[in-house]
Design a protein around this nucleic acid. Structure first.
Length: 416
RNA sequence: GCCCAGGUAGUAUAGAGGCCUAGUAUGCGGCGCUGUCACCGCCGUGACCCGGGUUCAAAUCCCGGCCUGGGCGCCA
């Protein structure tokens, strides 16, 4: 918090509240970087006795005079006349937030709020917040309404991934792995909906790109074809990246830039990719899922963003619209070897939906609640789910998904 | 779930049977220092994950435990 008498100008009286990021002490003058509202403010202290009161990480209030100077990060600094220490650290900090070498991600997470004072950590979450704002901006501008669907559910929404069981009063319930079914149902009334919220997966995964609790951006729209949905997500990704590119200062503390955008994201069919990988000597056949290794290999060739389209029905969930030859109107949005989003056109006919549930080996009875509204005029629709955390990894060039989540949850970590 | 790797001051690392009284950087404490900006210089402080074993000798080798990291698989 910064309070200035009148405008920020030479000699103006100022009061600043913040926490001390760094101290550079010299014989007669001490420079302090005070973090004030997430931005550095340089303090100049010429009184040795005053300077002694300041410690890194302390919360302080200073009173003084504004001095305009190009040598300070903001173009001005505060010449301090009075300091009150509001609170000071009681222990030696677990790591030096200004050091060039970072502690392991595990130590950082053990002291996450302290770690967030590190400029690069803070930058990641400023970018994340801005990216979410840009997502919303794009979707709202395109006629979407933001919704919230339940996270405590009665049965698996689509089979496949393992669910976390929870007790719901005297019954068994689960944490939602996806808002998939709800968002589809909502197109009936709202035409275009989106939700940004948590998803839960109880997979025994130990990787740099999986979490037990992740954030998903789910979008669903009536009347759009598979191609139009790909256009939509492509437009959305471009909007976010262009928006971030216009604010380079967000990236200053990271040695990274948002990824480059091609004119158009290339679209490869699943079959093309299988053929290509076969040509490279991969042991892979039509109908196989693409392994991590194959995706890395193909991703390196494709470079940047691209789509994989027309997946075999067997590799996609029951609600995806089938095409001829056992293929589907579906896509995955990839960045190199990393899956960012998957989506497609959905089945809107209740009879076909019922059949597809059966064919995927799922109990129709569990989906009765979901099939019911389809009998009352569900519009043709499609959409996608995008892994927000993974997208932020790409934006900030972080290799471990835990870095872009404030308090990540994985196989081992439940605290803090 | 399978496989691999690793636990050395607060943090990040070096050391691979005796050269270790365990080195370096940073932090922390002190002193010095042309408005600094990862300030700089000097001095000090502080560590071998736990339990067994092998050996004249173990941070180092072996066994077990605990903890962690990474890869694969699983996975909207």
């Amino acid at each position: 918090m910064l309070l200035v008498d009148g405008k920020i100008a030479e000699g103006a009286a100022a009061t600043a509240y913040g926490w001390v990021q760094s101290i550079r002490e010299q014989k007669t003058i001490t420079f302090v970087i005070l973090m004030e509202n997430r931005e550095p403010l340089q303090l100049v202290i010429k009184d040795k006795r005053l300077a002694r009161k300041v410690k890194v990480h302390a919360s302080i209030m200073v009173k003084g005079r504004v001095a305009m100077t190009e040598r300070a990060p903001r173009g001005y600094e505060i010449h301090v006349e009075e300091i009150s220490v509001l609170n000071k650290p009681r222990k030696i900090p677990p790591f030096d937030i200004m050091a060039k070498e970072e502690p392991s991600i595990d130590v950082r997470l053990d002291y996450r709020p302290v770690d967030l004072r590190r400029p690069s950590s803070m930058a990641v979450f400023k970018i994340r917040a801005r990216a979410l704002q840009l997502f919303r901006e794009y979707l709202v501008n395109n006629g979407f309404i933001e919704v919230n669907t339940p996270k405590i559910i009665a049965t698996a929404s689509e089979g496949g991934s393992a669910l976390f069981p929870v007790m719901y009063y005297d019954r068994q319930a689960f944490l939602a792995q996806s808002p998939q079914l709800y968002k589809e149902e909502l197109t009936m009334a709202f035409e275009r909906v989106f939700e940004i919220g948590p998803i839960f997966r109880a997979e025994q995964s130990r990787t740099m790109k999986h979490l037990s609790e992740a954030t998903s951006l789910d979008v669903e729209a009536a009347f759009l074809s598979n191609e139009e949905i790909m256009d939509l997500i492509e437009g959305m990704v471009k909007h976010v990246i262009k928006g971030l590119n216009s604010e380079p200062q967000l990236f200053a503390a990271l040695k990274a830039k948002p990824p480059a955008l091609p004119e158009r994201f290339p679209r490869f069919t699943y079959s093309e990719i299988i053929e290509k990988l076969k040509g490279l000597g991969e042991d892979i056949a039509f109908g196989d899922d693409l392994t991590q290794k194959s995706l890395e290999e193909f991703g390196n060739m494709a470079g940047g963003f691209y789509f994989i389209t027309e997946w075999p029905a067997k590799l996609k969930p029951f609600y995806i619209m089938p095409k001829e030859n056992g293929l589907t109107s579906s896509f995955d949005l990839m960045y190199m070897g990393l899956e960012l989003a998957s989506g497609g056109q959905r089945i809107h006919d209740p009879v076909m939906l019922r059949k597809s549930i059966k064919e995927h080996g799922l109990p129709v009875s569990s989906f009765k609640f979901h099939i019911t509204p389809y009998y009352y005029g569900m519009p043709p629709h499609g959409g996608f789910g995008l892994g927000v955390d993974r997208f932020i990894m790409v934006l900030t060039d972080r290799k471990n998904i835990r870095e872009v989540v404030l308090y990540p949850r994985d196989l081992r970590r439940l605290v803090p």
